[in-house]
C-alpha cells in the first residue's frame, strides 16, 4: 500500500502559482527525498500534505485515507517534523512528547510506554528529563522525530529538518531517518541539500512548483554528481554563475 498518494496538486498565493499539477506516490518502507531550491514549492507541498492548507485542486491520500474527506484518519497516520523547531524549550523532552501524545488522544500509561519506545528509537532516552533548551540542534531534531513517532504513524514527513545543523549532526539525522524507512516507515524528506540524498533513495526534484524528475536518485544522477544534475535541471547554476 502506498504511504502517500498525491494527485494533480495545484496551489497559488493570489496570482503566484506555487504548485502546478504535482502528482507522486511514496510507498511504505521508502525514503523519498523531495529536493528543490528555495522557493521551489516544498513548504507549500508540506502545508498541503499536513492540511494546514487545503488544495483547491487535486487529492492526497495518507495510508489510504483521503485527507479531504477523512482528515482525522489521514492525520492520525502522519508524523510531522516542521522546518522550524516546535518544541517548547522550557519543557523537558518527556513533557514535550507527553503534550503531543495528548494531542493525538493518547494518555496515561500508554503514552508513557510509547514515549519511552520513541525515545529509545532515536537514542534519546537518557536526555528525556532535560529541558529542550539545553539540547543542541541535533538532539532537538531527534526529540522532534521521536515526538512524531509516538502514535506509530505510517508516514513521516520532514520539512528541511537539517537546517542549522552541523555536518556531523546532519549525517547522524539522515542515517537515523533512513533506518526508520528501512524498518517500514514511509518517509518524505524535503531538502535543498543534495548530499542528504543516497543513490538508492527515491528522488522527486521540484522546481517552480513543478516536478522535474521522479525516480531513483542513482538513475537520475546516471553516474554524475547529483549536485551537478540538480543545478543543471533547476537552472540554478546559470542563475548563480557557477561553472559546471
Amino acid at each position: 500500500m502506498s504511504g502517500i498518494e498525491a494527485r494533480d496538486l495545484s496551489f497559488s498565493y493570489g496570482t503566484k502559482q506555487a504548485l502546478s499539477a504535482v502528482s507522486f506516490d511514496v510507498a511504505a518502507g521508502e525514503f523519498c527525498a523531495l529536493l528543490g531550491p528555495n522557493g521551489a514549492g516544498k513548504s507549500t507541498l508540506f502545508s498541503l500534505l499536513t492540511r494546514l492548507f487545503t488544495a483547491p485542486q487535486g487529492s492526497i491520500k495518507i495510508a489510504g485515507a483521503d485527507l479531504a474527506t477523512r482528515p482525522r484518519a489521514a492525520l492520525a497516520q502522519m508524523g510531522v517534523v516542521f522546518q522550524q523547531t516546535t518544541l517548547d524549550l522550557d519543557l523537558s523532552v518527556r513533557r514535550n512528547l507527553s503534550y503531543f501524545a495528548a494531542l493525538q488522544g493518547i494518555g496515561g500509561k500508554d503514552a508513557a510506554r510509547r514515549i519511552d519506545a520513541a525515545l529509545d528509537q532515536l537514542n534519546m532516552r537518557e536526555r528525556a528529563d532535560e529541558k529542550a533548551r539545553n539540547l543542541n540542534g541535533g538532539h532537538r531534531r531527534r526529540a522532534e522525530i521521536a515526538r512524531a513517532l509516538i502514535h506509530d504513524p505510517k508516514v513521516l514527513l520532514l520539512d528541511e529538518p537539517t537546517v542549522g545543523l552541523d555536518v556531523a549532526a546532519r549525517q547522524g539525522l539522515v542515517a537515523h531517518v533512513h533506518a526508520l524507512a528501512e524498518a517500514g516507515l514511509c518517509v518524505l524528506w524535503a531538502t535543498h541539500l543534495t548530499d542528504e540524498v543516497r543513490a538508492e533513495d527515491r528522488l522527486i526534484m521540484l522546481d517552480q512548483g513543478r516536478i522535474l524528475k521522479n525516480g531513483m536518485a542513482g538513475d537520475i544522477a546516471a553516474g554524475r554528481p547529483l549536485t551537478q544534475v540538480f543545478l543543471e535541471l533547476t537552472g540554478a547554476a546559470q542563475d548563480a554563475g557557477v561553472a559546471l
Binding site: T50, R51, L52, P71, R72, A73, L75, A76, M78, V80, F82, Q83, Q84, T85, T86, D88, F100, L103, Q104, G105
Partner: peptide
C-alpha cells in the same frame, strides 16, 4: 510565527 500552532493544527482532533 514560531510554528507550535502548526503542531497543534496537525493533530487528528477536529
Amino acid at each position: 510565527e514560531m510554528g507550535s500552532m502548526r503542531l497543534l493544527l496537525t493533530s487528528p482532533m477536529p
